[in-house]
Amino acid sequence: MLQLAPTATAAEPAANGAVSARPQSVVVTLPADCRMAAQAHLLQELLAALDACAIDLDGRAVERVDTAALQLLTLFKREADARGAALNWMGASVALDEAADLLGLAKTLKLPAAVPA
């Protein structure tokens, strides 16, 4: 689910073992089921993505989400901001939007209005 955007191909591939230069941009797609069981994996992806200069988050596929997921995203947003990475939402599902709203986190996360799927 972690994919390097085309701009990142200019950077040295990680395969040669050398520490690669900071990728230009990276996309993280949130899974349909974002609940607790999926979060250990999601956390690793998000941590890996923090190296990029620009991070695109795709929340359009999210169907099920819990408070822990939104806490994770809130922490990720704070961390990305602290590192100066540009965090951009490619979109958010209604489920994600509603949950963030209810928990008062929509503003913190700078979530866009939901695009009905």
Binding site: L43, L46, T67, A68, T74, L75, G104
Partner: peptide, 25 residues
């Protein structure tokens, strides 16, 4: 209902146990 999150106890992302709750409201 108006909801205001309290984010004063959030750990660093790398230290997060996703199942643990560090938010308040």
């Amino acid at each position: 209902l108006r909801v205001q999150p309290v984010l004063d106890r959030l750990p660093p992302l790398a230290a997060l146990q996703p199942a643990e709750c560090h938010l308040g409201w």
